[in-house]
Simulated scan of single mutants.
Amino acid sequence: MQPYQQNQYAGAGVKTAAEVDQGLRAFMLGVYNNMILGLAISALVALGVNMLATTSDASQAVVNFRGIGLTQFGYALYMSPLKWFVALAPLAFIFLFSFRMDKMSASAARGTFFAFAAVMGASLSTLLIVFTGASVVQVFFITAAAFGSLSLWGYTTNRSLSGMGSFLIMGLVGLILASLVNMFIGWAPLQFGISVIGVLIFAGLTAYDTQKLKEMYLYGNFDGEAAAKISVYGALQLYLDFINMFQFLLSLLGNRNN
């Protein structure tokens, strides 16, 4: 076995190709484990919040929304000014990660990520009001299959995706601007176009971010603590790719409540 000359997480040294491959698999497994835990937390919180916010007992319903009875908690969460706090709270966590990640310990970063996933779950609970539960589950599994395939391709391809990544980031900026505009004009054809483009952008970003994480391991020079933080950062990136692709697919394929 030929040695692989590369600085890795355990420090500088000569590693065989097998050792590098084993370390890379362990690193990516840590990324995916954190991401899956984050998704599980979001799903459980979304379901729990929905159970508290809705009722099938008409006598306990404060208001009827899309054929669903909302409790006092549901009314406050979805129809009062509190809804803006719930919607924007995940963004606050993203900013916290952006500005404080370098100063956090690995355990603090992981805890913050899981707290973010819980807050995101509360925000995503609105999807169970707008769309039928069956279509939410169906689109979730469609997203999972697509995400798995795209991430696997990003991991295994020998083609550099850096150029595609730059293009996708520019497309994401345009997508955000178009979404903000459509918040005010509410034009259905524009929303359809935003959803289609959104699916394509986050599909591409899934492959790009996976390859980027692989390269960060191969060419980085991190100690154990830094490697653990990078694992959490990678989980956040892939989590956001998954959630955004899921929401855009749900907008296209989901069945809405009346």
Rank of each mutant, 00 (worst) to 15 (best):
F141R: 05
F141C: 02
A144F: 14
A146G: 12
A146M: 09
A146D: 01
G148E: 03
S149R: 03
W153S: 13
W153C: 11
W153D: 02
W153M: 13
Y155M: 12
T156A: 14
T157H: 05
T157Y: 03
T157W: 01
S160M: 01
S160A: 09
S160Q: 07
G163V: 07
G163Y: 08
G163D: 02
M164P: 00
S166W: 05
S166F: 11
F167T: 08
F167W: 01
M170L: 15
G171R: 04
G174W: 03
G174A: 08
G174N: 02
L175H: 14
I176Y: 12
I176E: 00
L177S: 07
L177V: 15
A178Y: 09
L180P: 00
L180E: 00
N182H: 11
N182T: 03
M183A: 12
G186N: 15
P189D: 11
P189S: 10
L190T: 04
F192I: 15
G193S: 12
G193E: 03
G193D: 01
G193I: 07
G193P: 06
G198C: 14
V199E: 09
A203N: 02
G204F: 07
G204W: 10
L205T: 04
T206W: 08
T206V: 06
A207V: 07
Y208T: 10
Q211A: 09
L213K: 06
K214L: 02
E215Y: 11
Y217P: 07
Y219F: 15
Y219V: 06
G220R: 11
F222A: 12
D223K: 10
A227E: 08
A227P: 02
A227C: 09
A228L: 07
A228H: 06
I230C: 00
S231A: 11
S231P: 00
S231I: 00
S231F: 03
V232A: 02
Y233R: 14
Q237E: 13
Q237T: 07
Y239T: 02
Y239G: 00
D241K: 08
F242C: 10
I243N: 02
M245H: 11
F246Y: 15
Q247L: 14
L250P: 02
S251L: 08
S251T: 08
L253T: 05
G254L: 10
N255Q: 13
R256D: 00
R256W: 03
